[in-house]
Amino acid sequence: PDFTLHWNGITIHFKGIDEEQFRHLRELLDRGVSLEELEELAKELIK
């Protein structure tokens, strides 16, 4: 499924991740993950 997340004025689209992965990403963003960390995470998910 696809998810869209609005965070700090940025709209991020996640394609092909499951709800569990999306929930994990939201928790990280709510905790204050940096954009660099988010990019690293995205690379991991894409593999």
Score class of each variant (00 low, 15 high):
residue 42 A to P: 00
residue 27 E to S: 12
residue 26 R to F: 08
residue 23 R to K: 15
residue 39 E to Q: 14
residue 19 E to N: 06
residue 17 I to S: 03
residue 18 D to A: 06
residue 33 V to N: 05
residue 47 K to I: 11
residue 8 N to V: 02
residue 5 L to P: 00
residue 7 W to T: 03
residue 8 N to Y: 03
residue 46 I to S: 12
residue 15 K to W: 15
residue 36 E to F: 11
residue 45 L to C: 03
residue 5 L to H: 01
residue 42 A to Q: 03
residue 26 R to M: 14
residue 25 L to Q: 00
residue 33 V to D: 03
residue 21 Q to F: 11
residue 17 I to K: 02
residue 32 G to I: 11
residue 20 E to N: 12
residue 30 D to N: 11
residue 7 W to D: 02
residue 15 K to N: 15
residue 38 L to A: 03
residue 39 E to W: 14
residue 15 K to A: 15
residue 41 L to W: 15
residue 3 F to Q: 01
residue 43 K to I: 11
residue 16 G to T: 04
residue 31 R to M: 14
residue 45 L to I: 13
residue 3 F to S: 00
residue 14 F to Q: 01
residue 31 R to F: 08
residue 24 H to W: 13
residue 32 G to K: 03
residue 26 R to L: 15
residue 41 L to K: 06
residue 34 S to D: 07
residue 24 H to G: 09
residue 4 T to W: 03
residue 47 K to F: 03
residue 30 D to R: 09
residue 42 A to N: 04
residue 26 R to D: 02
residue 17 I to M: 05
residue 46 I to E: 11
residue 25 L to H: 00
residue 8 N to F: 04
residue 26 R to P: 01
residue 32 G to V: 13
residue 12 I to K: 03
residue 6 H to N: 12
residue 39 E to D: 07
residue 7 W to S: 08
residue 14 F to M: 11
residue 47 K to N: 11
residue 39 E to F: 15
residue 18 D to W: 03
residue 22 F to H: 03
residue 6 H to C: 03
residue 46 I to M: 11
residue 14 F to W: 02
residue 38 L to E: 00
residue 46 I to P: 11
residue 27 E to P: 01
residue 41 L to D: 01
residue 1 P to T: 14
residue 33 V to C: 09
residue 36 E to P: 10
residue 7 W to Q: 07
residue 26 R to W: 12
residue 22 F to L: 08
residue 10 I to L: 08
residue 38 L to N: 00
residue 36 E to N: 11
residue 16 G to C: 04
residue 28 L to M: 13
residue 30 D to T: 10
residue 4 T to V: 11
residue 20 E to Q: 13
residue 25 L to F: 09
residue 23 R to Y: 10
residue 13 H to Y: 06
residue 40 E to A: 14
residue 40 E to S: 11
residue 8 N to C: 06
residue 32 G to W: 09
residue 38 L to P: 00
residue 33 V to E: 04
residue 16 G to D: 15
residue 35 L to A: 05
residue 22 F to K: 06
residue 7 W to C: 06
residue 6 H to P: 00
residue 20 E to D: 14
residue 45 L to A: 08
residue 11 T to E: 15
residue 20 E to L: 10
residue 28 L to R: 05
residue 37 E to W: 12
residue 3 F to V: 02
residue 27 E to M: 10
